[in-house]
Protein backbone atom coordinates (compact mmCIF):
# COMPACT_ATOMS: atom_id res chain seq x y z
CA UNK A 1 0.00 0.00 0.00
CA UNK A 2 2.78 2.46 0.88
CA UNK A 3 4.58 1.63 -2.37
CA UNK A 4 1.46 2.43 -4.34
CA UNK A 5 1.05 5.73 -2.46
CA UNK A 6 4.69 6.59 -3.12
CA UNK A 7 4.48 5.84 -6.83
CA UNK A 8 1.22 7.75 -7.18
CA UNK A 9 2.55 10.82 -5.39
CA UNK A 10 5.73 10.74 -7.45
CA UNK A 11 3.81 10.61 -10.73
CA UNK A 12 1.53 13.42 -9.59
CA UNK A 13 4.59 15.50 -8.79
CA UNK A 14 6.07 14.80 -12.24
CA UNK A 15 2.81 15.82 -13.93
CA UNK A 16 2.72 18.99 -11.81
CA UNK A 17 6.28 19.93 -12.72
CA UNK A 18 5.52 19.29 -16.39
CA UNK A 19 2.45 21.49 -16.26
CA UNK A 20 4.52 24.21 -14.52
CA UNK A 21 7.13 24.12 -17.28
CA UNK A 22 4.50 24.34 -20.00
CA UNK A 23 2.88 27.29 -18.22
CA UNK A 24 6.25 29.01 -17.86
CA UNK A 25 6.99 28.60 -21.56
CA UNK A 26 3.58 30.10 -22.34
CA UNK A 27 4.46 32.98 -20.03
CA UNK A 28 7.86 33.64 -21.61
CA UNK A 29 6.86 33.19 -25.25
CA UNK A 30 3.41 34.72 -25.18
CA UNK A 31 2.45 36.54 -22.02
CA UNK A 32 5.54 38.78 -21.80
CA UNK A 33 4.70 39.93 -25.33
CA UNK A 34 1.13 40.73 -24.36
CA UNK A 35 2.34 42.68 -21.34
CA UNK A 36 5.01 44.53 -23.34
CA UNK A 37 2.41 45.34 -25.99
CA UNK A 38 0.14 47.09 -23.54
CA UNK A 39 3.07 48.74 -21.71
CA UNK A 40 4.57 50.17 -24.91
CA UNK A 41 1.17 51.26 -26.15
CA UNK A 42 0.71 53.11 -22.86
CA UNK A 43 4.15 54.69 -23.18
CA UNK A 44 3.51 55.79 -26.78
CA UNK A 45 0.10 57.19 -25.84
CA UNK A 46 1.59 59.09 -22.91
CA UNK A 47 4.33 60.57 -25.06
CA UNK A 48 1.95 61.59 -27.84
CA UNK A 49 -0.36 63.21 -25.29
CA UNK A 50 2.48 65.08 -23.59
CA UNK A 51 3.85 66.27 -26.93
CA UNK A 52 0.43 67.36 -28.14
CA UNK A 53 0.03 69.57 -25.07
CA UNK A 54 3.43 71.18 -25.42
CA UNK A 55 3.34 74.65 -27.03
CA UNK A 56 4.90 74.60 -30.48
CA UNK A 57 6.83 77.84 -29.84
CA UNK A 58 8.81 76.18 -27.08
CA UNK A 59 9.92 73.61 -29.60
CA UNK A 60 11.89 76.04 -31.74
CA UNK A 61 15.47 74.82 -31.27
CA UNK A 62 17.24 77.81 -32.83
CA UNK A 63 17.05 80.15 -29.86
CA UNK A 64 20.57 80.87 -28.67
CA UNK A 65 19.65 81.46 -25.04
CA UNK A 66 17.62 78.27 -24.69
CA UNK A 67 18.11 76.78 -21.21
CA UNK A 68 19.72 73.38 -20.85
CA UNK A 69 17.01 70.73 -21.27
CA UNK A 70 15.88 68.81 -18.22
CA UNK A 71 17.68 65.49 -17.73
CA UNK A 72 15.77 62.38 -18.76
CA UNK A 73 13.79 60.99 -15.82
CA UNK A 74 14.82 57.45 -14.88
CA UNK A 75 12.34 54.86 -16.10
CA UNK A 76 10.32 57.40 -18.07
CA UNK A 77 9.84 57.45 -21.83
CA UNK A 78 11.24 60.43 -23.71
CA UNK A 79 11.45 59.41 -27.38
CA UNK A 80 10.06 57.08 -30.01
CA UNK A 81 12.27 55.01 -32.29
CA UNK A 82 11.45 53.82 -35.81
CA UNK A 83 13.57 51.36 -37.78
CA UNK A 84 12.03 50.74 -41.21
CA UNK A 85 14.30 47.72 -41.81
CA UNK A 86 12.72 45.96 -38.82
CA UNK A 87 9.20 46.60 -40.08
CA UNK A 88 7.20 49.48 -41.50
CA UNK A 89 5.14 49.64 -38.32
CA UNK A 90 8.12 49.01 -36.03
CA UNK A 91 7.65 51.70 -33.38
CA UNK A 92 9.07 51.50 -29.86
CA UNK A 93 9.30 53.97 -26.99
CA UNK A 94 12.75 54.77 -25.60
CA UNK A 95 12.92 55.00 -21.81
CA UNK A 96 15.71 56.30 -19.61
CA UNK A 97 17.83 53.61 -17.98
CA UNK A 98 18.48 49.95 -18.67
CA UNK A 99 17.05 48.34 -15.55
CA UNK A 100 15.12 45.09 -15.99
CA UNK A 101 11.81 46.78 -15.20
CA UNK A 102 12.48 49.57 -17.67
CA UNK A 103 13.35 47.21 -20.51
CA UNK A 104 10.02 45.45 -20.02
CA UNK A 105 8.25 48.60 -21.22
CA UNK A 106 10.38 49.48 -24.24
CA UNK A 107 13.93 50.24 -25.29
CA UNK A 108 16.34 51.54 -22.65
CA UNK A 109 18.72 54.48 -23.02
CA UNK A 110 21.99 53.86 -21.20
CA UNK A 111 22.14 56.40 -18.39
CA UNK A 112 25.24 58.53 -18.70
CA UNK A 113 25.49 58.32 -22.49
CA UNK A 114 24.75 61.30 -24.72
CA UNK A 115 21.32 62.82 -25.14
CA UNK A 116 19.38 62.31 -28.34
CA UNK A 117 21.03 64.17 -31.22
CA UNK A 118 23.89 65.54 -29.14
CA UNK A 119 27.61 65.08 -29.61
CA UNK A 120 28.60 61.78 -28.08
CA UNK A 121 27.01 58.38 -28.18
CA UNK A 122 23.26 57.92 -27.72
CA UNK A 123 23.23 54.26 -26.63
CA UNK A 124 20.07 52.16 -26.50
CA UNK A 125 19.48 48.55 -25.41
CA UNK A 126 16.53 46.36 -26.31
CA UNK A 127 15.24 42.81 -25.98
CA UNK A 128 16.08 40.40 -28.76
CA UNK A 129 13.43 37.96 -27.56
CA UNK A 130 10.57 38.11 -25.04
CA UNK A 131 8.76 41.32 -24.11
CA UNK A 132 7.59 41.94 -27.65
CA UNK A 133 10.83 40.87 -29.42
CA UNK A 134 11.79 44.44 -30.43
CA UNK A 135 15.23 43.50 -31.78
CA UNK A 136 14.35 40.04 -33.13
CA UNK A 137 15.56 40.93 -36.65
CA UNK A 138 18.60 42.87 -35.42
CA UNK A 139 21.06 40.93 -37.67
CA UNK A 140 19.19 42.14 -40.76
CA UNK A 141 20.38 45.72 -40.19
CA UNK A 142 22.70 46.87 -42.98
CA UNK A 143 24.89 49.91 -43.62
CA UNK A 144 22.73 52.82 -44.74
CA UNK A 145 19.63 51.68 -42.87
CA UNK A 146 17.76 54.48 -41.17
CA UNK A 147 17.19 54.62 -37.41
CA UNK A 148 14.74 57.45 -36.87
CA UNK A 149 13.91 58.95 -33.48
CA UNK A 150 11.72 61.77 -32.34
CA UNK A 151 11.57 63.55 -29.01
CA UNK A 152 8.37 65.36 -29.90
CA UNK A 153 10.05 68.47 -31.27
CA UNK A 154 12.66 67.14 -33.69
CA UNK A 155 13.08 64.16 -36.01
CA UNK A 156 16.57 62.62 -35.84
CA UNK A 157 17.60 60.34 -38.70
CA UNK A 158 20.63 58.20 -37.96
CA UNK A 159 22.28 56.00 -40.60
CA UNK A 160 23.76 52.62 -39.76
CA UNK A 161 27.47 52.48 -40.59
CA UNK A 162 28.28 48.79 -40.56
CA UNK A 163 26.66 45.38 -40.17
CA UNK A 164 26.03 44.21 -36.59
CA UNK A 165 29.20 43.69 -34.59
CA UNK A 166 29.36 40.74 -32.19
CA UNK A 167 31.14 41.20 -28.90
CA UNK A 168 31.19 40.02 -25.30
CA UNK A 169 28.93 41.46 -22.56
CA UNK A 170 31.82 43.13 -20.73
CA UNK A 171 32.88 45.19 -23.76
CA UNK A 172 31.57 48.51 -22.47
CA UNK A 173 33.82 50.44 -24.86
CA UNK A 174 31.20 49.92 -27.58
CA UNK A 175 29.05 52.63 -25.96
CA UNK A 176 31.92 55.08 -25.44
CA UNK A 177 31.45 58.59 -26.89
CA UNK A 178 33.69 57.45 -29.76
CA UNK A 179 32.98 53.71 -29.73
CA UNK A 180 35.91 51.36 -30.07
CA UNK A 181 35.89 49.14 -33.20
CA UNK A 182 33.15 51.26 -34.74
CA UNK A 183 35.34 52.87 -37.38
CA UNK A 184 34.49 56.36 -36.12
CA UNK A 185 37.74 58.27 -35.70
CA UNK A 186 36.63 61.43 -33.94
CA UNK A 187 33.89 62.98 -31.85
CA UNK A 188 30.49 63.05 -33.51
CA UNK A 189 26.79 62.50 -33.02
CA UNK A 190 26.56 58.72 -32.81
CA UNK A 191 23.98 56.12 -31.91
CA UNK A 192 24.59 52.63 -30.58
CA UNK A 193 22.04 49.82 -30.35
CA UNK A 194 22.77 46.75 -28.24
CA UNK A 195 20.93 43.47 -27.83
CA UNK A 196 21.78 39.89 -26.91
CA UNK A 197 23.21 37.16 -29.09
CA UNK A 198 22.41 34.33 -29.70
CA UNK A 199 18.71 34.94 -29.92
CA UNK A 200 17.79 33.12 -26.71
CA UNK A 201 21.17 33.35 -25.02
CA UNK A 202 23.31 35.88 -23.26
CA UNK A 203 26.86 34.83 -24.03
CA UNK A 204 27.41 37.67 -26.51
CA UNK A 205 26.00 41.03 -27.56
CA UNK A 206 25.20 42.40 -30.98
CA UNK A 207 26.09 46.04 -31.57
CA UNK A 208 25.04 48.42 -34.33
CA UNK A 209 26.53 51.88 -34.73
CA UNK A 210 25.01 54.78 -36.62
CA UNK A 211 25.75 58.45 -37.08
CA UNK A 212 23.36 61.38 -37.17
CA UNK A 213 22.52 62.06 -40.80
CA UNK A 214 19.74 64.64 -40.68
CA UNK A 215 17.39 66.45 -38.34
CA UNK A 216 14.19 68.30 -39.00
CA UNK A 217 11.51 69.84 -36.80
CA UNK A 218 8.34 67.81 -36.36
CA UNK A 219 6.44 70.69 -37.95
CA UNK A 220 8.19 69.77 -41.22
CA UNK A 221 6.50 66.37 -41.24
CA UNK A 222 7.90 62.88 -41.09
CA UNK A 223 11.43 62.41 -42.46
CA UNK A 224 11.85 60.83 -45.87
CA UNK A 225 13.27 57.64 -44.38
CA UNK A 226 9.88 56.96 -42.82
CA UNK A 227 7.78 58.05 -45.76
CA UNK A 228 9.58 55.73 -48.18
CA UNK A 229 11.02 52.95 -46.07
CA UNK A 230 12.79 51.14 -48.92
CA UNK A 231 14.52 54.30 -50.13
CA UNK A 232 17.18 53.72 -47.50
CA UNK A 233 18.50 50.52 -49.05
CA UNK A 234 22.23 50.96 -49.41
Amino acid sequence: MTVRLFVRTLSELCITVGALIVLFVVYVLYWTGVQAGSATAGQLDGLQRAWAQRPVEAAAPAEPAAPAPAPYADGKGFAVMYVPRLGQDWEWPVLEGTRTDTLKKGLGHYAGTARLGETGNFAVAGHRRTYGDPFKDFPRLRPGDAVVLTDGTTWFTYRVDRAPYRTVPTDTAVIDPVPRRSGFDGPGRYLTLTTCDPEWGSSHRLIVWAHLDATQPVTAGRPRALRRPQASDG
Partner: peptide, 26 residues
Amino acid sequence: VYVLFQYVFPWAEPLLPFNDVTVDGQ
Protein backbone atom coordinates in the same frame (compact mmCIF):
# COMPACT_ATOMS: atom_id res chain seq x y z
CA VAL B 1 -2.32 29.94 -12.56
CA TYR B 2 -3.05 33.57 -11.62
CA VAL B 3 -0.53 33.53 -8.77
CA LEU B 4 2.07 31.93 -11.06
CA PHE B 5 1.61 34.49 -13.87
CA GLN B 6 1.30 37.47 -11.55
CA TYR B 7 4.01 36.79 -8.99
CA VAL B 8 6.08 33.66 -9.50
CA PHE B 9 6.97 33.86 -13.20
CA PRO B 10 7.81 37.60 -13.18
CA TRP B 11 10.22 36.79 -10.38
CA ALA B 12 11.73 33.76 -12.12
CA GLU B 13 11.98 35.14 -15.65
CA PRO B 14 14.82 37.65 -15.03
CA LEU B 15 16.91 34.76 -13.73
CA LEU B 16 16.96 33.43 -17.29
CA PRO B 17 19.37 34.99 -19.81
CA PHE B 18 16.79 36.67 -22.07
CA ASN B 19 17.09 39.95 -20.18
CA ASP B 20 20.80 40.40 -20.65
CA VAL B 21 20.83 42.82 -23.55
CA THR B 22 23.18 45.49 -22.22
CA VAL B 23 26.92 45.78 -22.13
CA ASP B 24 28.14 46.29 -18.60
CA GLY B 25 31.02 45.48 -16.35
CA GLN B 26 29.49 42.35 -14.86
